[in-house]
Amino acid sequence: MLRRKRWRFAMLAILPTLAIFAWVRIYPIAETLRLSVHKWDILSKNKPFIGLANFRELFSDRLFIEALTNTAIIAFGVLLITIPLSLVLAALIHHRARSRLAGFYETAIFIPHVVSLVPAAMAWKWIFDAKLGPLNNLLGWFGVAPKAWLFDPVLAVVCVIVLCSWQALGYAVLIYLVGFKSLPVSLYEAAKLDGATGPQSFRLISVPMLKPITLYVSVVTLVSGFNVYAQAFVLASDAQGAPGRQVRVLVLDMLENSFRNYRVGYAASEAVVLLLIVLLLTLMQFSFLREKGGRT
């Protein structure tokens, strides 16, 4: 009797939170799934069920394929830059933890993660600018010919990757730093006595011991990489009135289909594909890193 009463109280206590969660999280996902098999133009009342027609159309849609390819390149590019770089940076900062500048190092790397995206992206747009940008200026000193960073279809993608990595790095380094601080000092001392150099300790002790952290950081980085939008929008989209060619990414494509082409059902099917890809990649990362990391 008592147990049932307590259970009822507990349910009532978490109900408001659950209700909000269902409303802002579960309902939109369910609604997206529902819309993806319907045809809807935002305005009309009837939304005819069309089965998997949206999905069939997706895979012959040149723009969608382009967006998917760009997004995947950006997401994996960011992952490949962020993970090793943040691991090394965190190791260096951790190594200098007693330095008077330790706080400065941490803050300097974390700031990009907290600054407002659009102004930061505007600054990068200036850096990448073909005529006025300091990047071409800098490269000029080494005899490299100026490049049209944001106009070249390949370089524009690279620019988006650089911007996204610059942002993702701060968070990844912060999480790795926490990981480094949790590793017992005696392991490094034992390794030192066993004859390990600093880089060997990093490779043979830190990297394998931090696998659970790497798993978490890589999942978060990859998921946010697949959701790239604002960075591409500011740096390389015609909406900003600049570069001749835009870097089309999935979220941008969805927005266009929803609110410019009024094909909400079609955009929803894109969202479902994105969701499936992210889920699949997360599962793969878990099984890949858990297999070895699970021993620790």
């Binding site: 017992p184 006595l193 696998k211 021993r295």
Partner: peptide
């Protein structure tokens, strides 16, 4: 040319 045994053993868990 020394070897040390630590209080918490400091074995490499991985």
């Amino acid at each position: 040319d020394i070897a040390m045994v630590f209080q918490n053993y400091a074995l490499y868990p991985h």
